[in-house]
Nucleic acid binder design. Structure first.
Lengths: 259, 259
DNA sequence: GTTCGGCATTGATCCCAGTCAAGTTGTGAT
DNA sequence: ATCACAACTTGACTGGGATCAATGCCGAAC
């Protein structure tokens, strides 16, 4: 429940999210999908828009696909475009001069990229797997938001939600132990994937151990050892190195909140 | 320069900020100051408002003063009010069950408190010194923002700026060394205090070493040792334990960005 | 089938920040 | 002036995560 009253019309009924599978991108060159058929629509900023505004938005956007490992933009690039991710996973990262990297977030289908107000991107965005996005000219979308209060509200809400998440991540990075960090990360990912109707007791990890380490402020070895220990303790199972099953969800939750 | 185009009228000329001193609160019980005479006005969300809207805003707000150490609200409290800080310093913190604390930010005069969209405050807010604030009913301000695009824009911009700052802090917490953390912190504080015309080569610290440690994900001893070492290295001087002078600003900047 | 390369796991060692424990400084009250 | 208390500093020691290194695993290419 927002602390600011919702605008009239912001409660436009969202489409039910797709069920069963996380939207992914097979890299095929099929013709442009329409917004009304978008699998991610009920999760994107578009969910707040009535049909006529959705059409306008569709006309302003370009659907793009990028391959696994591709860079959407780099830290410092001019921020001319913003994006809606409709399939795949993207990592946002900041890098120090000597190469130390901090991943500030993982972008999942339905998420918006480009809330920063700076003229240049303050972080890099790279595709973890093949991705599909809707690209908008930043200035054009900004003018549209000026005209459509529902859109501006939606973007504002995204910014506030991300800010809350960022504060949680600060607590994690500054004060949690490696075990608590990993447990929190797994739960966060599982929770976010429930949007597509995925089971809450398992997660599939698109990202590598290096990505996880750079997200949690750890090294790859510590992430690996921590997962091994959680498995040995009977909290989780690892059917494969990128599949996690929670065996004792309560224990993982307790751990994530600090013993 | 924002990546979204500014709304018409958002560029209402801001009052020049007060010069020379950081606004502080002496705790006296003087009558309510008017917005037009507010020392922090050029820095608050009010700066975007034309006179008639400012009057409306003034009627909706209550000026409150709280003493040093007082709690404005606690993590988990119902988020019924939001605030503009006009004098003093406030710390925002999140705490784990066993008492480990992470300070997510220091609020300085001109800053807005209450951007979260959650029904309950996700962090605590405590006065470091005596403070003066303008309190608004959250729902009322939300409705006002729905009517006044300039106000909504201003709040949105605050959220985006805070989000950028939060990402910087994630990089700091996850990947910087203690020396780099302390250097970054001092520069950040100095930069923010320049708004009141304070000299960029010095900072006065309202907060204790414990607060600094909890902001940087360190212990109080490490903060103290790090400052001592920076002093020994000739980068800074410590005229008193809460006064920092940059002797080699370039060296501090280099250190903060990662050697 | 073999080789190769990327990713993950595991082990051994090291070092830096945390912990514990005194001391010191500064301030306000009486 | 003295005391009390909080905040800061400094020293000695320790432990946990980083580092370095080796091995294992698996899919893709040929």
């Amino acid at each position: 429940m927002p602390s600011f009253a919702p605008a009239a019309g912001r409660d436009v009924p969202a489409q039910p999210p797709p069920t069963g599978v996380r939207p992914c991108c097979d890299g095929s060159r099929s013709p442009r999908p329409t917004c009304s058929a978008c699998v991610a629509r009920g999760l994107t900023i578009c969910r707040a828009l009535p049909p006529e505004e959705l059409v306008e938005m569709e006309q302003l956007s370009t659907v793009i696909r990028i391959e696994a490992g591709a860079t959407l933009f780099d830290q410092g690039d001019e921020a001319g475009s913003v994006y809606n991710l409709t399939a795949g996973t993207i990592r946002l990262s900041k890098t120090l001069a000597d190469g130390r990297r901090q991943i500030t977030g993982f972008v999942l289908p339905g998420d918006f990229i480009g809330l920063s107000s700076r003229a240049t991107h303050p972080y890099s965005a790279e595709a973890i797997g093949p991705c599909q996005l809707c690209r908008f000219n930043a200035a054009t979308l900004g003018r549209m938001a000026d005209r459509l209060p529902r859109l501006e509200h939606e973007l504002f809400d995204r910014a506030r939600d991300e800010l809350d998440a960022a504060h949680d991540q600060m607590l994690l990075l500054g004060r949690k132990s490696p075990r608590e960090k990993v447990a929190s990360f797994l739960l966060e990912l599982a929770h976010r994937c429930e949007r597509w109707g995925q089971r809450p007791d398992r997660v599939s990890l698109d990202m590598t151990r290096t990505d996880i380490a750079d997200y949690l402020g750890l090294t790859i070895e510590t992430v690996s050892r921590t997962l091994t220990r959680m498995k040995r303790d009977g909290m989780i199972a690892l059917p494969s190195s990128n599949e996690i099953v929670f065996l004792r969800l309560d224990a993982v939750r307790t751990l994530a909140e600090g013993s």
